[in-house]
Design a protein around this nucleic acid. Sequence first.
DNA 1: CCCCCTTTGTCCTCGGACTGGAGAAAGTCG
DNA 2: CGACTTTCTCCAGTCCGAGGACAAAGGGGG
Lengths: 396, 396
Amino acid sequence: MRRMTARPANAHQARLLRLLRDGGPNSRAQLGDQVDLSRSKLAVEVDRLLETGLVVADGLAASRGGRRSHNIRLAPALRFLGVDIGATSVDVAVTNAELEVLGHINQPMDVREGPVAVFEQVLAMAGKLRATGLAEGFDGAGIGVPGPVRFPEGVPVAPPIMPGWDGFPVREALSQDLGCPVMVDNDVNLMAMGEQHAGVARSVGDFLCVKIGTGIGCGIVVGGEVYRGTTGSAGDIGHIQVEPDGRPCACGNKGCLEAYFSGAALARDAEDAAHQGSSPELCTRFENSGSLTAVDVAAAAAAGDAIALDLIRAGGNRTGQVIAGLVSFFNPGLVVIGGGVTGLGHTLLAAIRTQVYRQSLPLATGNLPIVLGELGPTAGVIGGARLISDHLFSPA
Amino acid sequence: MRRMTARPANAHQARLLRLLRDGGPNSRAQLGDQVDLSRSKLAVEVDRLLETGLVVADGLAASRGGRRSHNIRLAPALRFLGVDIGATSVDVAVTNAELEVLGHINQPMDVREGPVAVFEQVLAMAGKLRATGLAEGFDGAGIGVPGPVRFPEGVPVAPPIMPGWDGFPVREALSQDLGCPVMVDNDVNLMAMGEQHAGVARSVGDFLCVKIGTGIGCGIVVGGEVYRGTTGSAGDIGHIQVEPDGRPCACGNKGCLEAYFSGAALARDAEDAAHQGSSPELCTRFENSGSLTAVDVAAAAAAGDAIALDLIRAGGNRTGQVIAGLVSFFNPGLVVIGGGVTGLGHTLLAAIRTQVYRQSLPLATGNLPIVLGELGPTAGVIGGARLISDHLFSPA
DNA sequence: CCCCCTTTGTCCTCGGACTGGAGAAAGTCG
DNA sequence: CGACTTTCTCCAGTCCGAGGACAAAGGGGG
């Protein structure tokens, strides 16, 4: 099947496409209410979009008291691919043009195997999704990688946990392999975009999205747009120092937040606790599997294990300390907590909240919700679809 | 004299006005090179601007090889007022439409005397500037106050060091008294805008501007625009915690940056040192005047006093620690240090640099200049003029 | 000093785009 | 079944901007 090549010819068409993406099928009249164009102009632009095949007619809308309007929707055959590459697993999902997830696969995978191996697997996963009949091809793909990205080129730069990825032309390579436009971004930014599109951050202009997984990162949204910084490393809060002369960190410094709280640090602390025998719950789990991960800690905490709860609380305090500083600095309208450790749930959230509300100034915290992400593992892939759709639904 | 009431009628005119403001007098042809409008369209818009009186013809431009072009400039009678209200003094300056400072007055003043008393003095100072013949009236004024501001309304909110100012309708009151449009912002944001317009931050899109004075604040510029946060308190970094359970701070918390380094904290530390007799330099200064300020510390340091230097270094380290975190988070293209303590100069700068370059990740610091502000006390007033001119030079 | 080239400014016409009204089509409701 | 509403299409009038033609102004070489 030939895929979409058309792009909106002007800002009006782009606007209409985004309205249809975010609001679903809509009647011409309703569109008219939202865009402040004359009826004639609107009709012309809609007709042109219909010609390009980007949108299609979709029956009659419900009456608003008079003649019924014809519905318009984005072409139902449009498919976006969202790819979220984590440190230890990969998520791939297909969405329609309204960014609804039609199919979603997760597979374990070590990012350190390098870009070639990872993309082989990603392509296989995409092929599997296509084979289910969900898609005949892809009109665009958005990829998230766990490290800084030079956004315009779509190339990872100096990613600490991804040796072998530095400078790899992700965008170009995947664009070739998939045969469609591709955009690449940091995985945390994708999560932020996902929560903004379909999660808790709808209708918030300025917010932070803290992702606690193998590492810790923070998506920054300013005026509805992701802020990436001068070199694409904005939001890299995992290596903010929380303890002068503290624990050595993989980055070479001491006392970084990540050295105290992250998937890896938590696992190590848990194993230490297991060795010392202070936590029976963790002990048995360790003996069963020979190692421990954040998931074990979450399970132990859920079972009421005091040591596990303490570990989570301590990490939450440290994270909260950093977030408190960021809140004072950035004065966001919302803070979203997400990532692999959301399993730690409300114990973690409570610790973070306590710390932030105590340390930041009342003016900044007065009306500041701090909440868990709503979308879990789909945030990243939805964000990927959103990223590429934003790109495609903008004037060429 | 009737003052300017005209405003640009559309985005093109606004664009032209800003080009003339930032680039000075310009020929029609040069303007044409910058704006991507057809000659006819450009001529029409320029003619309209001439009609409104916002710009005037200004003789002939140098030849570029053919017929000489007519120069265009902003009306030379336009005057903006920049007001920078600090905790202990007020700066007032007049600028022309190109934001060049024509006259500048500084007077000591305690902001705690309240808005009415302060504005009485500001009006007197403005009157004095007018009396010198520099201005026959003002076409707009930009005011900076040392605390958070609800920007759209121009009203201070919950300013910790300005009791009595909370909710005072600064914008409205001053607009009445001066008879011209007024915009109000945080003093740190004004400093950032000043350095952006005429100082070290020209041509940098994303930067931070740290002002160390009575308090510590940070102006945040994203994509050339000042970011103010959800409630206008963005950049309030003085109360970020640098020492768990540390010194009590005026804000009620413990271990805030401001409790360790700021005009007030530095003065107190210096007096302590004088009492203990460890610093002869500070001792004699204390005996002379009965108290010490940051200026004394700067002088003592300049004279080579070891204790004074240590105080500055310690403060710089603490500040650098905070800035390092912000750099990791925000990934700016430039960090500007300014405010009253710039007298502490390179000792301070060196301490901050050391800390930032050591603690932040290479990708963020690799190409990151950390410099002192170029404009000193004029940064704020130029920023004020810039603020109001941005407002007036935008479509009505 | 003259002629030719370049640059700038003005005028004018043509084409395209947009507005808004008229009226037809399609429904709702009493 | 008729009056009213809403939607959609068509059309003419209008406005705006692009870009060519040409005049004005200056530079520089011969």
